[in-house]
Nucleic acid binder design. Structure first.
Lengths: 329, 329
DNA sequence: CTGAAAGCGCTAACAA
DNA sequence: TTGTTAGCGCTTTCAG
């Protein structure tokens, strides 16, 4: 079952267990000669330190939990990947947790894992602010794609990004846009809407909101119908999944994209590049977002608790075929 | 830092620590009255069992590690999702590890995690058989998308699946196909090739192999050029990513799919449905694959060691626009 | 620089 | 049914 312990190594090397322990955790505190011998013996025996035992005493688990609101959304893959890579560099383990869009599940998972991890990465958390603060009181927390004044966070620049989106549509002659909103408890959804409204106001175009919709392809049908009903010439969907669903439904109804309706998404998932027409979407460095989040979490201890960092990463509007000049009626 | 322990709960409830322990781990062995009292006190104190301490003694970590050869491949998402869901049902934690297509990284991660998990899910492992057996000697292992005689595994039925693919192409009039192979150290790649060859022989069409290629969109260009050079009328790509890359390159070179060349992929990733033309691909229940793998891992202890289960899940050929009748020359 | 010994939080015999 | 008592494997004072 379990392999050799420091006792076995200590016995075989003719030293005390504490020396073996030091040889691994604080190599500087042991003479080079004994350290080499211990390491050699350990290797021969196939000794591996037991992370649990180590964590029990030290309180350091070398593990961070990443809680994702819906693991089925390709958008998170890049974030997960970036987080995983950064964690590995520091020899940290990434624990992946799926909240399935349920605040209750999310909360339970966090509570269960809390004593076993060094901190939490909360990606697009659906928890109310209140709960977020409670979690942060227990463990270091980094919010991803969500902001809260007293907590560390990493987000893409939605203000600037939404401005780019609206500006792009306006430059194509659209005087009006419809936002197909994301889930009600999604911070991103309300934030995007606010940013779109502001940008629309500044630029001088109209903005309406329809929804909320679950941001999945299958919801695109209903969203598209609602948009058509609202006589939209330009729709901005909460994310690429929804946007793709919208485009499918529009095609089904014989409406052309972008001639009849322009469509914009968010996230720039892989599928946005291969669908027809290609989806114009607001992308960003999601891998960096994951990377940065872990970075912030690992360095959380070495910062003042007040005024936590709130990183904002740049976005980029990726122009593809789904947006075009407005039809001259 | 750390919360209340069983000592705190025991003191507050006026019982021994072992009773508290039992109240949580074996509720049956404690009188209902005391159990209720303990649970109440624990809740009030905000007590949470420490998984590390628990694991240290019991040797049960309630954690399974899933090692994925390349987390960037959307194909794994469904598997991960299925695994995550099944693990959660049993209150197990899923530890996600990315091997980045590197056998060395994969091996190191496994060794590091070995003392801290109950078992490994190895998805499309790039490790040589030899190493796989070593891992299995330490911990329960379930192979995903890979088989090895003495180990438990879950795979899609590539034999039947490849037969469907070849049969489909043959029925469209193709007399010859080209397989764009996956990575050299991928078990899937060689297995698919073998299955394709066999099916081709049975059905009476020719089969050639080109490659290997890294199964990414970016490699599709080179793969497409090689296929064109080989005067292929039908290409079967190692996976959808590669297939999509191939289609992009073909379009760039002015070749039409499927009129000039038919293209088939594997995995049925989301993008296969939205690209143009839609990609004909061999899909399967990847979520079930993930689910089943965890299931097998959790029940590993209750089975005879010899003759481990080797589950084969059905595939389904998803017909889309990328395959068509062969051009009459 | 190294050893002895205590103990992290919990579970598992063994008693009572 | 409940309490007592050893540890699980490791780190960490405190001596030497």
């Amino acid at each position: 079952m379990s392999g050799p312990t420091i006792y076995d190594v200590a016995a075989a090397a003719g030293v005390a267990t504490s020396t073996v322990s030091r040889a691994f955790s604080q190599p500087g505190r042991v003479s080079a000669a004994t350290r080499d011998r211990i390491v050699a013996v350990a290797a021969e025996l196939g000794y591996r330190p037991n992370p649990h035992a180590r964590a029990l005493l030290s309180g350091k688990h070398h593990t961070v939990a990443m809680v994702v609101s819906d693991i089925a959304n390709p958008h998170y893959f890049e974030m997960i990947r970036g987080a995983e890579m950064r964690a590995r560099v520091s020899e940290y383990t990434l624990l992946l947790v799926n909240a399935e869009e349920s605040p209750r599940v999310e909360w339970e998972q966090i509570q269960r894992l809390s004593p076993a991890v060094d901190g939490f990465l909360l990606a697009a958390s659906r928890l109310p602010d209140e709960n977020l603060r409670q979690v942060a009181a227990q463990r270091p927390v980094v919010l991803m794609s969500r902001e809260l004044p007293d907590l560390t966070s990493v987000v893409l620049d939605h203000v600037e990004g939404c401005h780019q989106v609206v500006s792009h549509l306006a430059s194509l002659g659209h005087r009006d846009l419809v936002y197909l909103a994301g889930p009600r408890n999604s911070w991103m959804a309300s934030t995007r809407w606010a940013a779109l409204q502001r940008a629309a106001e500044q630029i001088g175009v109209g903005a309406r909101r329809i929804g909320p919709f679950t941001p999945k392809v299958t919801q695109g049908g209903a969203a598209a119908d609602a948009a058509v009903n609202a006589r939209a010439t330009a729709v901005v969907a909460h994310n690429d999944l929804l946007a793709i669903g919208v485009m499918q439904r529009l095609a089904q109804r014989g409406l052309r994209v972008p001639e009849d309706v322009s469509v914009v998404g968010f996230d720039n998932i892989f599928a946005a590049d291969v669908c027809t027409p290609g989806l114009t979407t607001l992308g960003g460095a999601h891998t960096d977002l994951g990377r940065t989040a872990v970075e912030l979490l690992l360095t959380a201890g070495s910062r003042a608790a007040d005024d936590p960092p709130r990183v904002v990463l740049p976005t980029e509007l990726v122009l593809r075929g789904s947006t075009g000049t407005v039809a001259t009626a």
